[in-house]
Simulated assay, not measured.
Amino acid sequence: MSTSRYPQNWKEIATSIKESFDWRCTRCNRVCLRPGQKPPELTLSQRRVYTLQVHHFNFDPSDNRLENLAPLCSGCHLYYHRFRRGNISPGQLSLFK
């Protein structure tokens, strides 16, 4: 029995969210790397900056309603978790599509 609060299909959900926003952070608008992209001019630590992650606005990884999810670059995602806040609300997400 798994103790993860993420669903088994989390990878598919996250990829779908990232694709729907064209691999762009909804907070800073940074275009991030797609799976398998490894530009030779970027170091590993630089590539991490361009990694897109999916954030849960209510900080509950078991709540995967679309209005609770947003793609964020690693820096913006860290900001949300560090301060438990951000400057984009779920209602504003439609502005970025």
Rank of each mutant, 00 (worst) to 15 (best):
68 N>R: 01
48 R>N: 14
85 R>L: 12
88 I>P: 08
86 G>Y: 05
59 F>K: 02
54 V>S: 02
35 P>W: 08
61 P>K: 06
24 R>Y: 03
22 D>I: 03
68 N>S: 06
51 T>L: 14
92 Q>C: 04
64 N>K: 06
48 R>Y: 09
62 S>Y: 07
39 P>E: 04
38 K>W: 08
41 E>A: 12
55 H>A: 06
67 E>P: 05
54 V>M: 05
60 D>W: 03
81 H>P: 11
70 A>K: 06
61 P>Y: 02
30 R>S: 09
41 E>H: 15
25 C>M: 09
65 R>T: 09
50 Y>G: 04
26 T>Q: 10
82 R>L: 12
23 W>P: 01
26 T>K: 07
49 V>F: 13
21 F>A: 03
21 F>N: 04
52 L>G: 03
33 L>V: 06
73 C>G: 08
93 L>F: 07
38 K>Y: 12
80 Y>R: 01
86 G>L: 06
62 S>M: 02
61 P>H: 03
48 R>D: 09
90 P>Y: 03
82 R>F: 10
61 P>W: 04
53 Q>I: 08
74 S>R: 14
34 R>I: 05
48 R>K: 15
24 R>D: 00
36 G>A: 13
69 L>P: 06
40 P>E: 13
58 N>A: 04
43 T>N: 06
91 G>K: 13
87 N>D: 06
89 S>K: 15
